[in-house]
Nucleic acid binder design. Structure first.
Length: 426
RNA sequence: GGAGAAUUGGCCGAGUGGCUUAAGGCGCACGCUUGGAAAGCGUGUAUACCUCAAAAGGGUAUCGAGGGUUCGAAUCCCUCAUUCUCCGCCA
């Protein structure tokens, strides 16, 4: 959520930057609208504060009148208070309405794209930030997609998943389950080596948390909701991990705060269909290791690069062909100021699969989180938040299975062997 | 799931309707003192918003959260959250 003060101070710059993303005229108009509402709020508050001040001093007087036995004066003052309060009540309601409108309006405004964000409307307009400069793997004619390999080697049982839960809930078994666990441990160890503190958070969160990281209200339909207890199944570890710092004031010296966590991720994926959802490409439950950083605003873009290098290092160790895209305005997430996507090449499907997304949210999340820090002068400012997947497992597994298939079986990358305990799936 | 107790500032802690503008202490900052330090003494020490060109100043709200009663609420009432104790259930 943007700050109303920022709309005032940077109105023109925000409108210019918004042109890079798919914002509607309604959203542009909303900016001026909100500033006007805020003006109104201020004048109502000024008026109401004066009335309340009057009530306070009259009440104090009544106490003194009673003590002196001056009943008449006390009663007269009571009468007066009643009148003032009636007016104040009206103003108070008006102010609540205005504030609610401002809040609702702010929720409709996406983050302001960074200057590096290319303009464009769809994923085709994303900028190739780093291409794969070696040759793409060519598989034999009879190469199989991962869903066939998974079945052939009894690694993943999609049918059993359907029986137990439903479509999109894969059941991993045998070496498939082992590979999954190996990847989780490998990713966590890599993050640990890079200085991230490991967190194992709750997998369900309350409404406040879902709201603070922005899943509510915009993505309500994408989350599983346990209605009886009003808890939401997390769509990513970002939600519980970032919420650790909700309503907190940090010291400047606390930066950077680096956190990592493995969690299963639950997504309803309402409305998706077609070949994209086949196998592990798009599922309702998958495993992911997330990295999160809280950083000083002056340093957050250096941190973004650092996080990208971390993800890149992992992909290199896994020996997977990858490329990095800088998302265009149209493809940029609602809350992000700048995002880089990592895609891994799936040789059998002959397409690039998104396996990581690394973003700087600047103050967009911290404003709603009320996550601030004190500078040396004791002044409070919003911190910057960043996060990235390092990495999402399902599609990595898909690519590993497909790219590493040989006539003898599926080979396990060197770095993973000490985690899996085997070097070939056959 | 049932019963009881609690929640006050950075921390401890007093406060059962109006001299509370939240006592007192600890901590912290600054000053005095000192060769330097400690002790001692003095001063200051929450947040958000409004007002003001700015600063100073003034105002409003906030005692776990939200409502209510009252001219007036930390204090009385209701709902909720959290913590502790006991009982029940349980990996």
């Amino acid at each position: 959520m943007l700050q109303i003060s920022r709309l005032r101070e940077q109105k023109e710059a925000i409108i210019a930057a918004y042109k890079k993303r798919n914002v509607t005229d309604v959203q542009i108009a909303e900016i001026s609208n909100l500033i006007q509402l805020d003006d109104e709020r201020k004048s109502v508050q000024t008026e109401n504060d004066a009335l309340l001040s009057q009530v306070n001093s009259l009440s104090k007087g009544i106490g003194i009148f009673f003590k002196n036995g001056e009943q008449d004066k006390a009663n007269a003052a009571k009468e007066q208070v009643a009148q003032v309060k009636e007016r104040s009540k009206l103003l108070e309601n008006k102010m609540k309405d205005i504030q609610q409108s401002i809040f609702d309006g702010l929720l409709t405004l996406p983050n302001v794209p960074h200057t590096l964000v290319p303009s464009g409307n769809t994923e085709d307009d994303n900028e190739l930030f780093k291409a794969w400069d070696k040759e793409l793997p060519e598989l034999a004619e009879n190469a199989k997609p991962h869903w066939e390999l998974a079945e052939e080697y009894t690694l993943i049982d999609f049918k059993l998943g359907v029986k137990i839960a439903g479509a999109g809930f894969p059941l991993y078994r045998g070496k498939g389950a082992r590979l999954e666990r190996a990847l989780i441990n490998f990713f966590l160890d890599e993050a640990g080596k890079a200085g991230y503190e490991e967190i194992l958070p709750p997998h369900l969160v309350n409404e406040d948390s879902a709201r603070a990281t922005g899943q509510l209200p915009d993505k309500e339909g994408q989350m599983y909701h346990a209605v009886k207890d009003n808890l939401y199944l997390i769509p990513t570890a970002e939600v519980p991990v970032t919420n650790m710092y909700r309503d907190m004031i940090l010291n400047e010296s606390d930066f950077p705060i680096k956190l990592t966590g493995y969690t299963p991720c639950f997504r309803r994926e309402a409305g998706s269909y077609g070949s994209d959802v086949k196998g592990l490409n798009r599922v309702h439950q998958f495993n992911k290791v997330e990295i999160v950083q809280l950083q000083h605003p002056d340093k957050s873009y250096d941190t973004l690069m650092e996080m990208m290098q971390h993800v890149e290092g992992i992909l290199q160790k896994l020996e997977l062909p990858y490329r990095i895209l800088r998302l265009c305005g149209g493809d940029l997430g609602f809350t992000s100021a700048l995002t880089y996507d990592f895609e891994v090449y799936s040789a059998a499907q002959k397409k690039w699969l998104e396996v990581s997304s690394v973003s700087n949210f600047e103050t967009f999340q911290s404003n709603r989180l009320k996550l601030r820090y004190k500078d040396v002068d004791g002044k409070k400012h919003l911190a910057h938040t960043l996060n990235g997947s390092a990495l999402a497992l399902a599609r990595i597994v898909a690519a590993l299975l497909e790219n590493n298939q040989t006539s003898d079986g599926i080979t396990i990358p060197e770095v993973l062997r000490k985690y899996t305990g085997f070097d070939l799936i056959d």
